Simulated assay, not measured.
Amino acid sequence: MTLHFTKTTTPTAFLPRQVAEKIPFSSKKMPQILDYFSVKPNSMEAKTIKQTIKECEEPGIKGEEKYCATSLESMVDFCYTRLGKSIQAISTEVKKETPLQTYTIEGVKKMANDAAVVCHKQNYAYTVFYCHKTQTTKAYSVSMVGVDGTKAEAVAVCHTDTSGWNPKHLAFQVLKVKPGTVPICHFLPEDHIVWVHN
Rank of each mutant, 00 (worst) to 15 (best):
A112M: 15
C119Q: 04
T52S: 06
L83H: 00
S143T: 11
V147C: 14
T127L: 05
N123T: 15
T134H: 07
K168A: 13
H186E: 00
T9I: 11
D77L: 06
G60W: 06
T127S: 12
P179T: 06
I33K: 00
Q135C: 05
F37K: 02
H192T: 03
Y124C: 00
L3Q: 02
Y103V: 08
W195A: 00
E93C: 05
E190G: 04
F78W: 02
A152P: 02
S163K: 14
L170S: 12
L100S: 15
V196D: 02
T137R: 12
I90A: 07
A156T: 01
I90S: 08
A154S: 05
K62C: 14
P179S: 06
E73L: 05
E97M: 14
C79G: 06
P24K: 02
A152Y: 00
F5R: 01
T92L: 00
N42K: 14
M44E: 15
F129Y: 15
T104I: 13
T81R: 15
F172H: 05
D77F: 03
G164Y: 04
A139E: 03
E45D: 10
A171D: 05
T136M: 11
Y140E: 03
F14S: 05
N166G: 09
E65P: 03
V76T: 13
H132Q: 12
I61G: 06
N113S: 15
D148Y: 06
K110A: 15
V155Y: 00
H159S: 07
H159D: 07
R82A: 07
K176C: 05
C119W: 01
L72P: 01
H186R: 01
M30I: 08
P183Q: 07
V128Q: 04
A69Y: 00
G107L: 09
F78C: 01
V182K: 13
V108Q: 14
N42R: 14
G146Q: 09
Y126D: 09
C131G: 05
I184H: 02
N166M: 14
G164A: 10
S27P: 02
P24I: 03
V182H: 09
P11Q: 13
G164M: 04
D191K: 02
R82M: 12
T134K: 12
T136W: 13
E97G: 11
K138S: 14
K7G: 04
T81I: 09
D77W: 06
Y103D: 07
T162A: 10
H132I: 06
C56Q: 01
C158S: 11
N166I: 10
P99I: 13
E73P: 03
C119M: 08
E153M: 04
T8V: 05
Q88C: 08
C131Y: 04
Y36P: 01
F25K: 02
K50L: 08
F129I: 07
F14R: 03
E21M: 08
V142K: 00
I61T: 12
E93P: 01
A112G: 15
T8R: 04
P31M: 09
T136L: 10
I87W: 02
K168L: 11
I184C: 04
G84L: 11
G107C: 10
N113W: 10
K85A: 13
T2S: 10
I61M: 09
C119P: 03
Q88H: 10
P183N: 11
M1N: 13
K96I: 08
C119H: 04
K168V: 08
T48D: 12
F5Q: 00
